[in-house]
């Protein structure tokens, strides 16, 4: 793939971003991050309160990307096999077996949208782990592959009843966990209340140009971006220090009010996490029309690629959202580049 192609793709990526920004108000940053994840070929978990537009955002992206799109709702009685097949009695009175949402689109499955993932049981999470990490599935005595698959999932943190915490291993499979926060700008809030255009989510999403990207070329494009965008030894050293700081924040003089940083971290970012961070940083540099990664590219995606991978001491786990934001900010503030 030539530089010209990368430039064309970049224009397309920015167009995709603009298209989503047309229908989702005041979420420029999450939209930039999801765009980044798409071109980094990573799975995305959206986290936020009820009714903030998580599902609408993911559906809008799913429409614009193209390819096979499947969706499932997380419920407490959802079992892994519900993802793979479902049985029913046909008109002929005999039992039939059909492919479940995972298998329905076959290899063309581009987006698998798991709504309210934290309502599903850990068994379902386990199946998803394999699909997300290996993009394969064994069923009916055969191996299915999903080379173009991206999992979009969302969860709300308000409700705790009939929900299951996503285990750290499953969280680690997600390239990014992106917080969605209601924009605190009166003009936008007014628009959300009074502009009827935003009241019908399905109609709104239908305004997004469908299949803007050639989904089956995204993998190739992604590896081209990763090969083209360079990093220097100074940046590699900086990344390494950031990684170390996620493991031992106290060694970098990182202090959080009311938190014993020596006891805070049970496990820092994983090697997979750091490599995903660097992948996203390269895409960030590409989206900003650069050929080298800058520290700012890492900053742009650091919290979203790292914070959800950190395993905190159970004492602090209940306040994960606040602590992880503060910790990632402090790491960026304290770890020096040069």
């Amino acid at each position: 793939m030539s530089d010209q192609n990368l430039t064309d793709w970049r224009k397309l990526a920015l167009k995709l971003e603009a298209e989503i920004n047309k229908v989702i108000l005041g979420q420029e940053l999450p939209i930039r991050l999801v765009t980044n994840a798409i071109f980094s070929r990573g799975h995305v978990l959206l986290e936020g309160d009820v009714g903030v537009g998580k599902t609408t955002l993911l559906k809008a992206f799913a429409r614009a990307i193209g390819g096979g799109y499947e969706r499932i709702e997380g419920t407490i009685d959802l079992m892994p096999n519900d993802l793979i097949y479902h049985t029913y009695l046909g008109e002929d009175g005999k039992p039939h077996v059909d492919e479940g949402p995972i298998l329905k689109s076959g290899e063309d499955l581009s987006i698998f949208f798991f709504n309210e993932i934290n309502r599903a049981r850990p068994q379902v999470h386990s199946l998803l782990l394999r699909i997300m990490a290996e993009k394969t599935l064994s069923a009916f005595n055969q191996e299915f592959t999903f080379p173009h698959l991206t999992v979009f999932a969302d969860r709300n943190q308000v409700e705790k009843e009939e929900t299951f915490d996503i285990p750290s291993a499953a969280r680690d499979r997600f390239m990014m966990e992106i917080p969605i926060i209601i924009p605190q700008v009166d003009k936008l809030m007014n628009q959300l209340i009074f502009d009827t255009k935003f009241h019908d989510a399905d109609k709104l999403i239908s305004e997004v140009t469908p299949k803007m990207l050639k989904f089956d070329q995204l993998n190739k494009l992604s590896s081209e971006i990763q090969n083209t965008i360079k990093s220097t030894s100074a940046l590699e050293k900086y990344s390494l220090n950031l990684w170390k700081a996620t493991k031992n924040p106290e060694k970098y003089n990182i202090k959080i009010s009311g938190i014993d940083t020596e006891r805070l971290i049970v496990s820092g970012a994983s090697p997979r996490g750091i490599s995903m961070m660097m992948k996203c940083a390269r895409v960030s540099a590409w989206l900003n029309n650069r050929t080298s990664i800058l520290p700012e590219d890492i900053h742009a995606i650091f919290h979203e690629t790292i914070a959800h991978r950190l395993v905190f001491n159970p004492v602090y786990e209940l306040k994960r959202t606040e602590i992880s934001r503060e910790l990632s900010n402090e790491i960026l503030n304290k770890v020096s580049v040069t």
């Binding site: 700012e296 900053h299 960026l332 503030n333 304290k334 770890v335 020096s336 580049v337 040069t338």
Partner: peptide, 20 residues
Amino acid sequence: IITALHAGFDNLIDQSLFED
């Protein structure tokens, strides 16, 4: 000198100084 200047800025604001 650039490293020293960066360290000077970091020292002044008690955190890493970036352009943003």
